[in-house]
Every structure is written in structure tokens, then in C-alpha cells.
Design a binder for these strands. Structure first.
Lengths: 203, 203
DNA sequence: TCCCTTAAGAGACGAACCGTCTCTAACGAC
DNA sequence: GTCGTTAGAGACGGTTCGTCTCTTAAGGGA
């Protein structure tokens, strides 16, 4: 009875311990098994401590994910070609999805009504950088790529992930890029050039 | 004490009563409020009767949806143009989503692990019919449209619905068709013609 | 027509979590 | 050293789960 100095954690250390516990719980039992009660027990703390920091389990799960992984925004791929860059982004998404598990993603979608739309805007931001570099290289004309075209590949991959519950095969990513994104970008570039030529390079 | 012949329902009548009750419950309280207990109470029956027929609330909700609405497969649009047909399909999807509510859709995605993939294959089937007719009219070359291109518009709309929680603005549908789908189909048709011309119409 | 199998209707039951609340004691600021 | 804050722990009433039991209406077969 004399042993065990029961150190009482605070601040960042406590928060990290809880987020680690939450992630372990996700790993062990999936999003369905992620109960506040379980996390508190695993982190050896009280429920109140968790409720004080996060509103609900969706909130907690999101925090745990962010605590575990960094954003792609910190590491936009730069392979030297538009094709390589876009594929790298899509592969990054597919890998993350595999790490998270469809379980978690779907659970979050269902519960996190207040899911910061910004959460998903990371990808468009990365795409913007990639497209900017491709334009500099002369690979594409910046105006040829509308915002909707720019987000199409990532949207399709996300759709695939959300709908199928399975890891997205790499072939699908390649298909999206080679069969749709690149042809579309090139076709629009060509249309633009032709239009400009027809109007006598007026602009 | 003499009143109320307590007719005991069976078979189809009972099933319909339960599904109606389930839909009313969805309507009233959303997917979150769809508990077996509530549905049983509303349908004035026992929980066991429900559990006997459906495995869980996702199953029940799906059945209620199907009981309420018919499939687009029974009514593939035929407007006379590829653009019109595709837009009609996308608008059909958007309308259904509005009727169901994002709540329900997300809940199902999260819980219905066994969601019959066939559930979503209705749209590709409709697209195949539409594209077949467009090919007959000479609007597109059938080979120019790969399966992935054919499903792209619907996938993007579904993605939009799943991600945003809001009704999809009609402008987005138009954008998808006019900015991506049609240009892509036409570009690939043109590429094919050029390639055929270059090889001296060898084939 | 009567009987007998089936399943509807109703609710009790223990289990799991919820979110709130309370209590004690460790911590850190001053 | 004092004192306000909050971690750690768990009790609490409430909801829903899914299973089980019990009675009795329904309806087909002999």
C-alpha cells in the first residue's frame, strides 16, 4: 500500500495520453467501440476530463486522428510531372484511408455534422500548388483547369473510399488520372489554343 | 371493455405497417431517432416481430426506403439528347437525396456494412442505356466512353451529397456535365477519329 | 368443424453507455 | 503555506439494446 506514486497528469501530457488511448481504442474496437467510458478507462482518467475537452466522440476521434497524423499540406508532392504529382496525392489519400479504416470515416461522416469543411479543403489546396507548378513548366494552361476539374480526381477517390469500404486499388487511381483528368486538361488546353488561333490571337 | 376488435395483422399487411411506421419515425426524428423500440411502439407491435424480419435498424431503414420509393431503373430518362438524359439522372439523384436526408444516408453508410453493392449499381445501368441511345443517335462513339467515364457524373454527385450534407445546387450538376463529362466524351471521340485517320483507317 | 402449429402482441430483463454530478486530493500560482 | 483549480474515480438515473417468456389470435389440415 506504500508503493505507487500516483503522479497526476496535466495539460499537454494528459491530453496526449487521452488521444493515444482513443487511438488505441479505435484500433482495437473500431469506431463503434469508441466509447467515452472505454477511453477514460484505458487512459486511466475520469470521463469528465474528456468531456471537458471534447464535445463528443466524433470530436475526440478527429482529435485523435490529427494527433496521430500530419496533413498532406505539409508535404505537397513534387515529382516533376503533373501526372506524378496528382497520382502521389491520390495515393496519399488512399493510404490514409487504409490507415484510418472505413469504419472510422463513415462513423465520422454520420456523426460529425459540424465537420469543419476545412478538413477536406487540404486536398484542393495541394492540387492548386501542383497545378501552379505544372503551369510554370508549361504542362498545362492555368485557365484550362477549372476548380471543379482540379478537385475531380480527389473527389472521385474519396467517393470510392466512402462507397466501397475497401482499400482503393492502385489501378483505379491510375485510371482516374490517365483516363479522365489528364485527357480533360489537355482537351481543354487544346480547345483554348484553337479558339485563340481562330480569333486571330486577339487577346 | 367490449369494444376494439383487436385484429392481429400478418404477412404483407403487418410488414407494410412496420415499414410505414419506420418511415414516419425517420421523418419525425431522423436516423438517430430510429430505434427499434420506437418503431415497434408506433406500429403497435412487439420488438421481436421486427427483429424476426430485419437484422438491425440499417436493414430496416433500407427496407423502409425501398418500400417508399421506386428505382430509377423503372424510368430511365429519354430527353432526346445525351446532355438532357445525364442531367435528368443527376437531378433524380439529387432529388432523392433531398427526400431521404443526409442524416439517413450517412447513418446507413456508417452502419450498413453489408450494403448490397447492387444498391448503387442502378445508376450505372441507367447510364448504360442512355449511352447506348446516344451512340445510336451518333452523338458519341460507344468505345470512347469507358465504364469509369460513364459513372463519373453520378459518382461526383454522390460524393457531393455524401460530403456536404446540403442539397446539391443544380449548378453543380450542370457543371459536372458541361465542364467535364461532355468535353471528355467529345475529346475521346475526336482522339479516336484522329487515330483512326492517322493509321489509314486500317481497322 | 375442431385442433394444433405458428407467430403476433406485449413487456420483463440484464447489459452497455450515455452525460451529469459529487467528492477527495494533487498540483501549481502566489 | 494557502488556496483555487481540476484530475481521478465512480455513483447515478435514463435510454436503448437484443433476448426471452408468456398469452392468445389466426388459419390450415384432418
Amino acid at each position: 500500500m506504500t508503493g505507487e506514486a500516483k503522479a497526476r497528469r496535466r495539460g499537454a501530457a494528459l491530453e496526449a495520453a487521452i488521444l493515444d488511448a482513443a487511438w488505441d481504442e479505435l484500433d482495437a474496437s473500431g469506431y463503434a467501440g469508441l466509447t467515452i467510458e472505454n477511453v477514460a478507462a484505458r487512459a486511466r482518467t475520469g470521463k469528465q476530463v474528456i468531456y471537458r475537452r471534447w464535445q463528443n466522440r466524433a470530436d475526440l476521434a478527429l482529435a485523435a486522428m490529427r494527433h496521430r497524423y500530419t496533413s498532406i499540406a505539409d508535404d505537397v508532392p513534387d515529382t516533376g510531372s503533373l501526372r506524378g504529382d496528382v497520382l502521389a496525392v491520390l495515393r496519399h489519400m488512399a493510404r490514409r484511408f487504409r490507415e484510418f479504416g472505413s469504419d472510422l470515416v463513415h462513423g465520422l461522416m454520420a456523426e460529425a455534422h459540424e465537420l469543419d469543411p476545412e478538413t477536406f479543403e487540404v486536398i484542393p489546396d495541394a492540387m492548386a500548388i501542383i497545378l501552379g507548378r505544372a503551369a510554370e513548366r508549361g504542362e498545362v494552361s492555368a485557365e484550362a483547369v477549372t476548380p471543379r476539374i482540379a478537385r475531380m480526381p480527389a473527389d472521385l477517390v474519396r467517393h470510392e473510399m466512402l462507397l466501397t469500404d475497401r482499400p482503393v486499388p492502385d489501378g483505379v487511381l491510375v485510371e482516374i488520372v490517365d483516363e479522365m483528368f489528364l485527357p480533360l486538361v489537355r482537351a481543354r488546353g487544346r480547345d483554348q489554343r484553337e479558339k485563340r488561333a481562330a480569333t486571330g490571337a486577339s487577346r
